[in-house]
Design a protein around this nucleic acid. Structure first.
Length: 270
DNA sequence: AAAATTTCCAACCGCGAGTCC
DNA sequence: GGGACTCGCGGTTGGAAATTT
């Protein structure tokens, strides 16, 4: 009748793993493999539940795990796949060699989700929502106060449809279209329900631009700088060349100027 | 310098699907 | 056939580290 419980929970250790426990787990798996998580802890001399061992191995100890910050390309893939798959972290992780579902999930929740919310994008639907846009952040930014770049930025191309000052249903749609168009210009991102015929008209950004990367907003608001930052790696590729952190930051900042103004026709709200 | 607050992420929890007995 | 179990997944949390006051 059934199986024995996988472990006696009362005698098991919980919490952070010690280097010694890691060593035991790695040593055992290297020698015998990890076929049966139920019996592994006992055989390996660990006072842990098999579930905890599996998690520790798959999320941390596996030799093929890539550690360090996510690259532009990886961030692009995550956003693109999330727009298609939703919170299917394991499915997303399957397409990012060396990254775990837990790591991607954490990165999404701590970095990307915040960026999308500040930009007025619903992180669930990947569609713009004005009620999510953090206008206070835009208006209080040093960039706006000092240079009013948002206002001076040429918002539209001559062939674009002008927006009116009071958001109407049509304008909401237009903002939506402009938003999707800009997002679609970012390499890799396609979003949902993007009107494909608008793409070229509304694509002021280079094809290798990354919209999430624009959250390196030191110029806008230094307090937000860390939002996209992850430690360790000191350089990143942009346009096929290696750049420093500062260069990446500047790159992102420059793109933000375009991005916010294009996403929202700020003039219409002033 | 210290306290308070925020951020980040490793690890835990609970659930559903599939498997075992 | 069905209850007990494993496995894998996604959501949540605890606490360390970083940042701000």
């Amino acid at each position: 009748m059934g199986r024995e419980p996988c472990c006696d929970k009362n005698s098991l250790k919980k919490g952070s793993w010690t280097p010694e426990e890691d060593r035991k787990l790695v040593h055992y798996i290297q020698k015998y493999g990890y076929g049966n998580w139920r019996t592994l802890p006992k055989n390996a001399g660990l006072q842990r539940c098999g579930k905890s061992c599996r998690l520790r191995w798959t999320n941390y100890l596996r030799p093929d795990i890539k550690r360090g910050r996510f690259s532009f390309e990886e961030e692009e893939i995550i956003i693109q796949l999330h727009s298609i798959l939703g919170n299917k972290w394991s499915a997303i992780a399957a397409r990012l060699p060396g990254r775990t579902d837990n790591e991607i999930k954490n990165y999404w929740n701590t970095h990307i989700r915040k960026i999308l919310l500040r930009m007025g994008i619903d992180p669930v639907t990947h569609r713009p929502r004005l009620d999510l846009l953090d206008l206070s952040w835009i208006l209080s930014s040093s960039l706006y106060n000092q240079n009013q770049i948002f206002l001076n930025q040429p918002l539209m191309q001559s062939n674009e449809i002008p927006t009116c000052s009071v958001p109407s249903t049509n304008e909401t749609q237009l903002v939506d279209q402009k938003f999707q168009s800009n997002i679609s210009g970012l390499s890799g991102y396609q979003g949902n329900a993007m009107p494909s015929n608008l793409t070229e008209d509304y694509m002021p950004l280079p094809s290798d631009y990354n919209y999430y990367g624009s959250d390196h907003q030191t110029v806008i608001d230094p307090s937000l700088e860390s939002v996209l930052s992850t430690p360790l790696s000191s350089s990143t590729y942009v346009n096929g060349s290696n750049i420093t952190e500062d260069e990446r930051e500047n790159y992102d900042n420059n793109n933000l100027k375009f991005e916010i103004s294009d996403i929202l026709d700020i003039n219409g709200f002033m």
